[in-house]
Design a protein around this nucleic acid. Structure first.
Lengths: 328, 328
DNA sequence: CTGAAAGCGCTAACAG
DNA sequence: CTGTTAGCGCTTTCAG
C-alpha cells in the first residue's frame, strides 16, 4: 500500500539502513546520498511509518494532557483555553497528544492507550498519589496551574498574587475603600493563592480585609448571587466586590441588579479569568486576564525538555493583566 | 522491561499464538486454556503491546475529531460539549482519539500522526474537498452538526427545525405576536436551518415573519446589541426577539437594558444552545437545549460502525428541548 | 560513511 | 482447539 523503506532503498540504490539514517538523522549521511534518498522518497510519497519506528525504538512519542477536575473539564473555559494551546503546540512538534480527564484516565488504567504515554501535563488539582504512580512508571510529569510541595516537578503557574494585586489596587485607585471578596469552592490551590493575596494586599494598603466575612459559596452563579445579596444588604455594605472568578462576579452583578444598586456607581465589581462571561453581562465585567495560551505552550515545552533530558526550570510564572471594563 | 507474549507463553505453557488468541478473541480458545493464560498474564502484569499489534495488523485503531471552524474551536462551548462527549465515548472503546482543528490538520498533512488516522468525525462547516480527500485515502468520515448533499456520509444533527418551533410556539403561547429574529454569521448550515425554520413556523401560525428585517450581524455580543438597539428603537418594536444563539440573545438583553425595557414584560427574549451564558445574565435566558452529549456519542458510534463495516443510518437527528427561564 | 543482519512484540495463515 | 512459522517496517549494532 504505502511505500516502505525497501522501496526507497531500491529506487535510490542505497541500503535500508542508510535510508533510515537519512530520515532520523540526516547529518549522518553524505550530502549526495541524502539527496538521492530524499528524491526517491519524494517520488514514492514515502514517509517513515511511525508505528514501526515506535516498535523498534521502544518509544511512542505520545504525551497526555489530563484535566484533574471532577465536574466540567474542557467545558471550563479556562481549561479549554489551556487545552487548545497545548493542542496547537503539540501539533507543531512531532509528538502526539491525548486529552483526558484524570478520572477517566484512572478508570482506564492499564489500557494500551494509557501505557503508551511517556509524559503527562496535569492540569488542575492533581492528587499526589497520581503523581507518584506516574513517577514510579517513569512517566514524565509537568504541573499546570498547580504546585505540589515535596515533588520535584516543573510547574507552570499564572501569577495569582500579581493578578489580585492589579485588581485590588485598581479598585483603590477608583476610590474604593471597603472592598469585599467572595470566594468559592474551586481548586484549593487557586483559592488559597487568590485569597491570601487579597488579605496581604489589603493589609499592605492599610485596609481592613476582615471587615466582611470572606464567603465561601458553591461555585455557581446562583450561589454567588445569594451570598452577594446578603452581603450587599448590610447597612455597611462594601463599595466594591472582588469575585474570585468571573462566575462569582457575575453572581454579584445579579445581586446588585436585584437590589437596584447601580454598577459601578454604587458598587464596583471585578472578576478573575477574563472569560467570555465578561462581555455577556451588562455592564461588562472588569477582570484579571490570564495568559492561558502561554501557560499551555510552556507546559508543552517543559514536558518536551524533560523528555529530551534537558534542563528545565522548576517553576515558571506567567504574568497577569487587568482588563478594565464597565463594572468598575 | 514489560512482559511480552513470550513470557506469558512460557509461564502458562502454551504457544505464543494461543496467548495472542486469548487476548484478541477469547472465545477461540478452550476455557481451561484461557484461564491459564489470564493467570500467567496477571502474574506478569502483561497486557498486549498496542504498537506491535498495530504494526502487524496494519491498523492503528485511531480516530480523529476535527473541528472545522476558523476562530474559536474548543473554546466554543458548543463544540467543547460535543468534544467532551466524544472523548468519553472513545475512551470506553478500544480506539484512540486525536482532537484537532481542520486548519491545523490540513497544515500538518502528511505527518505520521495524520496518516495514522482511520476515521474522522468532522464537526462544523467542513469543506467538500476535505471530505473528498479523506475518502480518496479511504478514511471513514462522519459529519456532526452539518450535512453535505452529494456525499454518502452518515451525519448526526440536532433538530434545528424542532428547536425553533419550540421557541416560537412558546413565545406565541405567552401571547407574543410580533416576533423578530436576529441572526449572525455562524456556520452557514446552522444559520440556514434555523432561519428557514423561523420563517416557516411563523407563517404556519399566520404571523408575519417579514415584519422586521432579519438582521445578519457579526457573531459577537456587541454587534448583536447594536443591531438589537436599532430594532428595539422602532416605534413598532417587536414584543419578542429570538436570537439565533445565546450570544446574540445576550446582546438583545443588553440592548433592552440600555433602552430601559423590562424583560420579559416589555420584551421576551429567547436564545438557542442553552449555554452557560443563560445563567449568567439577568434575567436568565430561555433557550433551546441541544443534547451535545448524545450528538457526540452517536458520532463516535456511527464512525465505529463504519469502521467495523456495519450498516449505518445516513442521518440521525437528535431532538431539542426548550429550557424556559426568566427572559420570557 | 555505508551495508548486512538481527530483532522489536505481535498476528495470521497453515498445519496438525 | 493449538502450535509452527513467517513476516509487519523500521532501527541499530557491528563490520567494512
Amino acid at each position: 500500500m504505502n511505500a516502505t523503506i525497501y522501496d526507497v532503498s531500491r529506487l535510490s540504490g542505497v541500503s535500508t539502513a542508510t535510508v533510515s539514517r537519512t530520515f532520523s538523522d540526516p547529518d549522518r549521511v553524505r550530502d549526495s546520498t541524502r539527496q538521492k534518498v530524499f528524491e526517491a522518497a519524494e517520488i514514492l510519497h514515502y514517509s517513515p511509518n511511525a508505528i514501526a519506528r515506535a516498535m523498534v525504538r521502544q518509544r511512542t512519542d505520545k504525551i497526555a494532557f489530563l484535566i484533574c477536575k471532577k465536574d466540567a473539564t474542557i467545558l471550563d473555559e479556562f481549561y479549554a483555553r489551556i487545552c487548545e494551546s497545548i493542542m496547537r503546540r503539540t501539533m507543531q512538534s512531532d509528538r502526539q497528544l491525548v486529552i483526558s480527564t484524570a478520572s477517566d484516565w484512572a478508570q482506564a488504567a492499564g489500557t494500551a492507550q494509557n501505557k503508551q504515554v511517556e509524559g503527562v501535563i496535569l492540569g488542575g488539582s492533581a492528587q499526589a498519589d497520581m503523581v507518584s504512580e506516574f513517577q514510579s512508571k517513569r512517566v514524565a510529569v509537568v504541573l499546570v496551574n498547580n504546585r505540589m510541595p515535596g515533588f520535584d516537578l516543573p510547574c507552570v503557574l499564572s501569577d495569582e498574587y500579581g493578578g489580585i494585586r492589579l485588581a485590588v489596587e485598581h479598585l483603590i485607585q477608583r476610590g474604593r475603600r471597603s472592598i469585599a471578596m467572595i470566594a468559592g469552592r474551586f481548586s484549593p490551590y487557586i483559592v488559597g493563592e487568590r485569597y491570601n493575596a487579597f488579605l496581604q494586599i489589603m493589609e499592605e494598603h492599610g485596609l481592613d480585609a476582615g471587615a466582611y466575612p470572606v464567603a465561601m459559596c458553591d461555585p455557581t452563579v446562583e450561589s454567588a448571587a445569594r451570598m452577594a445579596q446578603e452581603l450587599l444588604s448590610r447597612k455597611d455594605r462594601p463599595d466594591a466586590v472582588l469575585g474570585i472568578n468571573d462566575v462569582i462576579a457575575a453572581g454579584v452583578l445579579k445581586a446588585a441588579l436585584r437590589l437596584g444598586l447601580k454598577v459601578p456607581d454604587d458598587l464596583a465589581v471585578v472578576g478573575f479569568d477574563d472569560s467570555t462571561i465578561c462581555g455577556m453581562v451588562e455592564p461588562e465585567l472588569t477582570s484579571v486576564h490570564i495568559n492561558c495560551r502561554l501557560i499551555g505552550e510552556l507546559g508543552v515545552d517543559r514536558l518536551h525538555a524533560l523528555l529530551n533530558g534537558e534542563e528545565c526550570p522548576p517553576v515558571t510564572v506567567v504574568p497577569a493583566e487587568l482588563r478594565i471594563r464597565g463594572s468598575s
